[in-house]
């Protein structure tokens, strides 16, 4: 590779090393963007808002939405598992469920995020290390270093960047799911207790087994009690997504801060003063619109779930019909 021109480095789109221009390539959408210094007004903004960096910013909205789309069902699953465990008749299992609910709910989110992601990452690598490199005799902790053999790395050191990002993202999803799962577990646990006892007794009188009662009587009826709590959780989850930034995922907060910071003409074609306020205002609007849409959807679900229930809402629907 030596002396043979430029090596094919990942992330490099610069044509050749030691080229005299600091920022050699410009990928632009509009043809008039080739010399932004001469532009003004709308043209300047249309170029500025379509730089590669801004496209990455717009993509990061997708990251946040994807996180929500994956995390919400996963957290609900964790919550359902936790609630089922907490009300299990087998005492150790019930303890396990209750410990999960109270411990995770009792730890500050940020502390849990910072601790758990590192612990999980090192835990996975430690297990892989034990399996894949049994002959390794050097200690894993050497002073400050956490050292496992290179084939036990997660993901492998030579894996492409997107795999590293996907791995980081999955750790984030799992952590979010565990935290919000604990809250969901408590909500679902309460909802299961709220189903009128007469319903359970009637089921028993019809000869339904414990399992049948749970799945056919209890679960279909509990959602109407769980929904107010779950919708709260959903709102909090939406607002908690900027925590992604804490986990090293380049989310909308990262890009808003990066793009908004003042830029000097030397390092960008689009110099501007400190615009962070406007970028954060944009985020604010995004979150407000998103939570408003969520509210509308949740209202509809509430109405639908109340149908046929022995609650005030259900009764009102029956009378209106």
């Amino acid at each position: 590779m030596k002396g043979g021109g430029c090596p094919p480095l990942p992330l490099t789109r610069q044509p050749c090393f030691l080229s005299p221009v600091p920022i050699p390539t410009r990928s632009t959408i509009f043809s008039f963007c080739s010399d932004p210094a001469t532009l003004e007004g709308i043209q300047w903004y249309s170029c500025y808002l379509t730089t590669g960096k801004h496209l990455a910013f717009y993509m990061s909205f997708g990251t946040v939405l994807l996180l929500l789309a994956v995390t919400a069902p996963t957290a609900l699953l964790f919550g359902f598992g936790g609630a089922m465990a907490a009300r299990a008749r087998f005492t150790p299992l019930s303890w396990l469920g209750k410990i999960y609910i109270s411990v995770v709910r009792g730890v500050p989110d940020i502390a849990f995020f910072l601790f758990f992601v590192i612990a999980l990452d090192q835990g996975i690598e430690y297990l892989r290390h034990k399996v894949k490199c049994p002959d390794w005799d050097a200690p894993i902790r050497q002073g400050n270093d956490f050292l496992v053999c290179s084939i036990a790395k997660m993901p492998l050191g030579d894996a492409p960047q997107w795999l590293h990002e996907a791995y980081g993202f999955s750790l984030a999803v799992l952590t979010f799911a565990i935290v919000f799962g604990a809250f969901a577990a408590n909500v679902l646990f309460g909802a299961m207790q709220a189903v009128p006892h007469a319903q359970i007794e009637t089921a028993a009188a019809y000869g339904l087994s414990h399992r049948q009662t749970f799945w056919r009587i209890l679960v279909p009826q509990m959602w109407t009690y769980a929904l107010p709590g779950l919708s709260n959780l959903w709102m909090v989850l939406i607002k908690a997504t900027p925590l992604l930034f804490l986990l090293g995922v380049e989310d909308i907060v990262f890009w808003a801060r990066e793009l908004g910071g003042s830029k000097t003409a030397k390092f960008t074609d689009y110099p501007h003063p400190d615009w962070r306020m406007w970028y954060f205002l944009g985020l604010l609007v995004f979150y407000l619109v998103f939570t408003r849409v969520s509210e509308l959807v949740l209202d509809r679900i509430t109405t639908r779930l109340a149908h046929g229930q022995a609650t005030v809402d259900g009764e009102a629907q029956r009378k209106a019909a």
Binding site: L11, R13, P22, I23, T25, R26, S27, T51, G52, K53, L55, A56, E258, G261, T264, K266, F267, T268, D269, Y270
Partner: peptide, 18 residues
């Protein structure tokens, strides 16, 4: 870090530069 020009920063394409 990608936030400390001229040493390292993200250029207009969002790549590490500097």
């Amino acid at each position: 870090e990608g936030a400390y020009p001229p040493y390292n920063f993200l250029n207009d394409n969002g790549e590490v530069d500097g």
